[in-house]
Design a protein around this nucleic acid. Structure first.
Lengths: 335, 335
DNA sequence: CTGAAAGCGCTTACAG
DNA sequence: CTGAAAGCGCTTACAG
């Protein structure tokens, strides 16, 4: 690999001049510039990013932390990733997905090691040790999601209170008086969004005097199906279900229909926080509240960039509700 | 951020000694070691990876290149990623997913910039400009998938010839004489696996004197459904379909059943290269040939590591067939 | 067992 | 407009 020094020697200029040409940081005479460019071409020169990073103190690389080994990437999560990476590129950064779990040690190494300029956290828990680790160590970061008390931290998140209220009230408006709520369980994880949705569901059903049932379900299609298959037996009076578990929602509908429960005539199903991709899996097509994944992915990058630009500026904090997408699994309550 | 120099000063040793302690590269007296460790603790020292990388010439970071912006990540692709990253960690590397497309320029910057020690390529095309770019530039890499002629390059890949033959012959054995093949289209992409599967399908059906039909389908559930909905009309004589399109397979089955075609009584469906996750989406549960994603993810890391250890060693080249998972969408041919 | 020093490949005031 | 030189934070022969 040719170095800048090699190029400088061949073009008979100083290494500084090569740097100016490569980075466009200072004006260089056309003639000199051409000599340098020719030398670079001849040597197949490519600037070593590590050297540059050390000198500059920045890499222009951002990391999206997702615990891939612990939690399965849903279609929606992938959408977060692609939109964030697109946005990062627009802003002159590279964004990579770093499959780091809750292991603080690893986060520390990554974040303080200087390899990345900043970090976007996903799958944030109410009490998240990673957040404390990053904050304590002064690593620039933004959250997609948020902790119990995000106070002065930058975040973008789904407005789960608004979205859950909308879910319940749409069902109430259709005459449902007994509404169940399926949420996703994951050992050790106290997901912020899940927790907020659950308590809002309880509050709003109570507010409307509607019967409520909380049902846990693993993040697997087969678990959704199993739940659906025994649903009619175990909850004969329930006429509507909110499913906040993207992985399990199609399986749940399938479990209902294959055991003879008609959807939506007997039971309405509303998927909370999902995508067109998953909604298309079932028959009838799932009615759902769409997670604004691409919007939040972009905003997550913006929040981080702002923090990088000025660590003392007020943090960007944005909540976006899900949007209702009417398909075929909602109907008026029976009887 | 405290540097090694800061630690050295505080512990009253040389920076070299600190380095020895941090890396365990040389024996240091217990007393000295403890002084150094205490100083590190007091200062909250964390080694700067960029400095280390520059000095060593290695970062111990690997990149998995997946064109996230251009191709949608299937559940199976995610499995590749998680298993590769798990394996990498076992071997002392970090593996990140780098959402790079076909843009050679970007690959060049990444790969030659010294930020990563090696690269694993996914979604390899028959003629893949990225492969040439990496090879020309002497960047250590391995492919998951392979080009038309991978000759001396390290790769691990699905044995699509064997797997497709198995798919066809299982259907033939059930008496099917008119078998269609749905493959995934993607503009600009001439995916190696798709291409090999298609030609094997044509060869094996011909070998058995069975009627064949090639059907293109975008990688979207809704496109699968649309294809399924018009299938009975357009291909009334066809009794079995091989679907090599993980995103579209559930939609295809759904399209069939919702237009009154009974699966598998009237039409058998065999999903080629999929996962339990996707198979669970439909009713009846999809019979499929499982992509050995976690096995190949691991092997991909092994292939790359071997190349890193000894660039002149013979490349690891492995083909693994899919394995048949019997579920509920296969039956004897009707009539 | 420990240290002084060169070197990894860049960037960037500073000087001219 | 161009260059000499210090510095980014480490690692690692080499010497003692």
């Amino acid at each position: 690999m040719a170095t800048m020094q090699d190029v400088a020697t061949r073009a008979q200029v100083s290494i500084a001049t090569v740097s100016f040409v490569v980075n466009g940081t200072k004006h260089v005479t056309d003639a000199t510039k051409q000599r340098v460019e020719q030398a670079m071409r001849e040597l197949g020169f490519r600037r070593n990013s590590v050297g540059a990073a050390l000198a500059r103190g920045r890499t222009r690389i951002l990391a999206l932390l997702f615990p891939v080994l612990e939690r399965s990437l849903s279609h929606t999560s992938v959408a977060f990733f692609s939109s964030a990476s697109r946005r990062a590129r627009e802003r002159g950064y590279d964004l990579v997905m770093w499959p780091i779990g809750t292991d603080i040690e690893q986060i520390d190494v990554l974040a303080r090691g200087g390899l990345v300029d900043g970090v976007i956290l996903m799958e944030v828990q109410l009490e998240d040790p990673r957040v404390k680790a990053l904050a304590d160590n002064n690593v620039p970061f933004a959250m997609i999601g948020r902790t119990e008390d995000p106070s002065a931290l930058p975040y973008v998140d789904i407005d789960m209170v608004t979205s859950t209220r909308e879910a319940v009230e749409r069902l109430v408006a259709l005459g449902h008086r007994d509404i169940a709520f399926v949420y996703s369980t994951h050992p050790e994880y106290n997901h912020g969004a899940v927790s907020r949705a659950r308590s809002t569901y309880l509050a709003v059903t109570e507010e409307h005097g509607v019967a409520s049932t909380l049902l846990a379900c693993d993040e697997q299609p087969a678990d959704g199906r199993a739940l659906g298959e025994r649903f009619a037996d175990e909850h004969p009076a329930t006429t509507a279900v909110i499913v906040m578990n993207e992985h399990a929602a199609p399986g749940f509908v399938r479990g209902l229909t294959r055991t003879g429960t008609r959807v939506p005539e007997q039971v309405s199903v509303l998927s909370l926080g999902s995508s067109a991709y998953m909604a298309e899996m079932t028959d009838p097509t799932l009615t759902y509240l769409r997670t604004p994944a691409s919007e939040l992915g972009e905003l997550g990058v913006d929040a981080l960039e702002r923090r990088l630009a000025d660590p003392s500026a007020s943090p960007l904090q944005t909540l976006l509700p899900c949007t209702f997408v009417p398909n075929a699994t909602l109907a008026r309550a029976r009887g």
